[in-house]
Structures are given as C-alpha cells and as structure tokens.
Amino acid sequence: MIRHPQLLYLLFLPVILVPLMIAGYHQGLKTLQTFFGRWRADILKETYVVKYFFAGLGVFITLLALILSLLGFQGKKRIEIAEHQGTDIVFVMDVSRSMLCEDVEPSRLGKAVDLAAGIIERNPGARFAVVIFKGEGVKTIPLTEDIKAVTGFLDILNPSLLSAPGSNIESAIHRALESFTDREQRRKIIVLFSDGEALSGDLDAAAVKAVEAEVLVLSVGTGTKEGGRIPLEGGTYVTDSGGKEVITRLHQDTLEELALKTSGMYLPVSDPVFFTRISDVTEGKGSLPEFKTRDADAYRSFLLVALGGFCIFLLARIRRWKNIS
C-alpha cells in the first residue's frame, strides 16, 4: 500500500528521462567528434557507449528509487502494545435534513441518538464528546464524564441547530480529532452517525489525520438502501425544483471507505449485535487493533538502491577512456 499516492505523478520523471538520455547520447557523440575529430571519436565510441549506458542506468535507477522511497510503500508493521487508561468516544452526528427521514424508526436522527445513548449506557467510565455537522463540523460538547450534559444535548439534536447546508465529513472528522487530548493514554474512538448522502470534503485527508492521531472510526450507516421521503412540518415532504418528492437513501460506500481507511468498522443500524460489536472496540476486545501499528516504510530499501545507482554512475564516470594518443 502506498501512503502518499498524490506523489505518483513524479513517476513521469524517469519516463521523461529516457528520451533525454537518448538525445544526450547523440549529442555526446557529436561533442566527441568536435573535440577529437571523426577518426578518434570512432575509437572512443566503444568506450563511450559502455560509459554512457552505465552512467545513464545509474541515473535512471537513482531517480526511480528516490521517487519510490518518497511514495511511502509500507513495509513490515511495527507493533506496539497500547496501554490504555480508559476510552474516549466522540459522537459525530450528521444533522443534515435527510437525517429526518423516517425509513428507520423513529427517524434516522432519532435512531442515531438512541444508539448513542445505548453506547453511553454500556460504557461506564468512558468520556464522551459530541460533534455535529452539516456544511461544517461544530464541536458542541467537549470530552467529559458528565453523561447528563451529553445525553441532554443529544436529546435536542435537530437540523436547525446548524444553518450551513451540506454534509462536510472532512470538517466533522477534524473537529472530532480536536476533541481528543494527548494528556492521557486513552483509547480514542469516533462513532460517526450518517446516512452518507451528499458527503463532501476530502475523505482521504480526514482518514489520514485520523490514522496519524491513532483514532479508530466506527461509521454507522443510518438509514436504508430503499430510503424514504424527508418530512417537513405540517405533514408535507421535501420536494425538488420540479415539485417531485425527494427520496433519500443510505449511501454506505463512503462510510465503509472511511472505516476501512482508519482500520475501523462499518455498522448498519439494523445490525442485530450492534452494541456487542461496539463494545468489542470500546473495551479493546475483538478483532480490531488494540495496539499501535507503526507502518515501517520500505524507504530504506529504495534508498539503498538509489545509493547503488549513484555508485554505478560514479564508476562509469571514473572508468578510463581508451588511450587515444
């Protein structure tokens, strides 16, 4: 796996190098003819071909190896057992209008609140925080043991708490990561409740930040694939510009991807063993990592190859020309 795929474009450099090297070969031949005349250049050519080939090979190998070392190929994982003094859980709640859909009982948002309350109840001694998001994420309750404050706030959740439209997942994850503290060695977990619809922001950037902060993301797909209408006050439903009722559906791909990238877990709200699976994570049981994994980059192998490329180049340059006197 590559940690910095955004640098893959650098691989064009060795490709560009090849025609440059070929042009350089012909140019070198001409230079030899200019300085030594045609007949002596012909004598030198045999050596020149060998020297140029190996010098070029050295340059090519060095350039390619340097780029590969920058890409961050993951080598062996260094595993360190994590010793935790407790668990910190940040609930990230999508409060976009689609969360009012009633395809799950009582509504997507209501179900999310119920599940969050269940998690709180099953994790005595843990600290909880709440981040809500629409167009951007907002930290509303900081990490606290004060369950009354957390549940009290969850009870009043509704889409009108935030005005900015949209569902910016990146901003929400960033706010959630800010909620954690490094003052204590605690298990850090984000539980994201969302229907995954129209999520915006850079998911990869958010996932990278979460991994760096050693935070597991459990994403909960709140809704159904069949979906439903979005109710409004007065018994009406949200309509599109053509007056047709909007049907909102669960988009679990994004949520699954986020969980996968942070070594976390995706859970549908309908999972019959939802709380057991959550507890496995919050209590450090089960299959999810209860250790810090440090990805040991394979950069050193590539650097050694680059060093070898340098050596080939240097040896080619130092190699003696034929005696032409």
Binding site: A129, K139, I141, P142, L143, T144, E145, D146, K148, A149, V150, S179, T181, R183
Partner: peptide, 9 residues
C-alpha cells in the same frame, strides 16, 4: 460547559 480538560473550549 461540562467538566472537561478541553481548556480551549
């Protein structure tokens, strides 16, 4: 604000 070590908040 409930008791927290998030002093910035």
């Amino acid at each position: 604000i409930p008791p927290t070590v998030d002093y910035d908040m």
